[in-house]
Structure formats: C-alpha cells, structure tokens
Design a protein around this nucleic acid. Structure first.
Lengths: 178, 178
DNA sequence: GTCATTTATTAACAATTGTTATCGTTGGAA
DNA sequence: TTCCAACGATAACAATTGTTAATAAATGAC
C-alpha cells in the first residue's frame, strides 16, 4: 500500500491507467493472493484488513488521492498479508504490476522517487506501529479524532474499533466515557 | 535496522568496516538522532527500543550475524524513532552511512540487493505488526518461545516482556500459568 | 567473599477490555 | 413504503492486565 502518490506522476503516465468503478464492499485483493494491481482512488474510500479467526481487523483507510496496493507483495512475489476492500462506491484508476514495472524501467526518476517513497512509507509504518505499542486504545482514539477527524466521521464505527485494536463494544464505551 | 546481511557482501567490502568493542548497556544510537552508522554484530547482542514516558519498550533483538542500523533514518534524514543499545559486551563491525552510500553508488548489484532487502524487511515488519494486532500477549509469548527459544534463553525477561507489550509482572504470570 | 544491583516471583487491588446478549435506530433494497 | 440487514449503545459478567509493593534469587563489581 502506498499513500500520497504524486499527481504529476499520475498525469505523466496516465495512458497506462484504466478506470474502474466498483460498488461498496468489493474485494479488490484477497489476503493470501499475490498482488498484481495498484489502485489510485479518484472517488470513494478503501480499507486494508487482515483476517483473524473469522473476525476482521482493519489496518488502514485510504481516501481520494491515495494510491493503494500490496506493493511489497508484487515486488517480493509473496502472498499479500492483507485484503483490500472498498467501503463506499468507488471510482478507481488501476495500474497493472506489469505496467508499473515497465514505468520503473523506463523512468529512472520514477524508480528513484519510488525508492524514496518506500523509505518514507517504512518510516511511517514504524510510527504507526510504535503508536500502537505506546498508547492505550483510548489515547489512540483521541489522537485519531484529533489528527484525522474525517476518518472518524466518514467510516462506520466498528471499522474504527478494529483499526484501534479493540471491539466495537469497547469503542462505544470509550466514546461515552466523558 | 536490517537482519541477515549477506556475509559475502561483508567480505567484499570488508576494508570499509572498522571494529568496535563495547561493554553491555552501551547506547549506539539515541532515539531522536539521525543515524550515521551501520553495525554488524560479530559477537554479542543488541536491542532497539523506544521511550514511552520514561519506561522503555524493546522493539527488536539482534544477534551474531545481524546488521543493525536505523537505515530509514539515514536514508530519509529523519531522526531515528528508536535507540540502539548493547545488551551484552559486543564485538561489532561498523560502517559509516557515508561509506554505505559510496558502496551503493559503486556497486549496482549491492544497490539492487539492498532494494530487495528493504522490501523483504517491510514485509517482515508487517508480519510482526499483524501478529501484534491478532494475538494475545500469551500467544505471542508462546510463539516466541517456539520460534526463537534462543532469544528467551539469552535475554533478561523484562526486555522480553516489553517486547511483547506487557509488564514483567504480567509475563511472569503468563509463564507460571500452566 | 561481600555487597549492591539487577532480575524474577508473588500478592492485592483497580481498571480495562472481551464476550454475549438485548434493544433501538438507521439506511438501503425490493 | 416496507422490510431486513447493518449499526451503535448498553448491561452483566468473566478474564486479563496494570500498578504498587514486598521479597527472594541471581549476577556482577570490587
């Protein structure tokens, strides 16, 4: 997965992209499968999630302007550790892993920018992980509310709960605690 | 940080490395500082940890043969999110970020291999994170015991506890529960 | 060997969360 | 509009963990 894909990159290689419209709750990638597509969100929102004994745990939300893919899956040829699913009806621009590789090979600037972006992503992923290690669910909820209020407003609460690592019951308690 | 550094890589560029011997509990990198060195463990063991209100949380352990650095720090020029510290007296081989860059530029094979390794590292980091999301501390402890018994044997228990995300008191209870 | 520090166990209590279930409310599909 | 599924709140109870403190054992420095 990958956020903040430069829009000029998108424009520069726009002929590679194909538009795809999907309704809500559409699975774009199944956990365990090797990713072959990158999605760029024009309208709507997606989430990534992992299965845990039948219950699902949301790991991230994506919105307009975000690029989403299991890039580490199609780069390492390993099965994706998570699923990608639409939460709303979406308008997406899709790019195949093959075309992605082609652009990589054709454009050293693009390759360089991808490399930089991976390190930044890695750095961000660590920040998220450490916030998870350091803070209680209550504090994480408060931070989410403060930093990304649009997520809390837009996404059903039980997805937020699993994103915070708690049940929807527990999140409901936290919300009505004050 | 980076595990399973190829030993032939080390040999090939061995003249860049300098040996460093440190006693236990030596800070090799302070959280918040920009990393300028990569460490290769010849003998001993290191840990990475983050500070949380005075208490420290261990995020990873490293042993003989592992390469350790805040590579995402010296690549993105961002402050390291964690500290690196020796747990035992260590014999280390050190490589400066500058020399590391030099080797990167001199050897396309090395650069390619670094790129691949980063994607694998990213994939592994996700697995660790997801195991954290999915499992109880008890289950994580059992998995650690099963997959990496040498860590449990070699490292003091309170470091293991913070690595599992619990207090040493709670780990002691888990251990004596059966 | 002695002493101080580090490490691990145990107890008691508070706080939080999970689980299960019930009950309104809402929103979309037919 | 009607109906059904999805969503959110709440209650009651069990289970786990955190906190603080006391104590014992192990380790390392001298």
């Amino acid at each position: 997965m990958d956020t903040s894909f430069k829009s000029d990159m998108l424009k520069q290689f726009s002929h590679y992209f194909k538009q795809l419209e999907v309704p809500a709750k559409t699975m774009l990638l199944q956990e365990g499968q090797i990713s072959r597509t990158m999605y760029f969100i024009e309208k709507g929102c997606l989430r990534t999630w992992v299965n845990n004994d039948g219950k699902d745990i949301t790991t991230q939300f994506f919105f307009e302007g975000d690029a989403v893919s299991s890039i580490e899956s199609f780069r390492t040829n390993q099965p994706s550790l998570y699923s990608i699913e639409s939460l709303e009806p979406c308008v997406l621009q899709t790019l195949s892993a093959k075309d992605f590789q082609e652009i990589l090979d054709a454009s050293p600037e693009f390759r360089k920018s991808m490399e930089d972006r991976m390190f930044k992503r890695f750095y961000q992923a660590q920040q998220i992980f450490y916030s998870y290690l350091k803070n209680t669910p209550q504090k994480r909820y408060e931070e989410l509310l403060q930093q990304y209020p649009h997520i809390v407003q837009r996404v059903p609460q039980h997805y937020i709960a699993s994103y915070l690592g708690i049940t929807s019951v527990s999140l409901s308690r936290i919300r009505n605690r004050r």
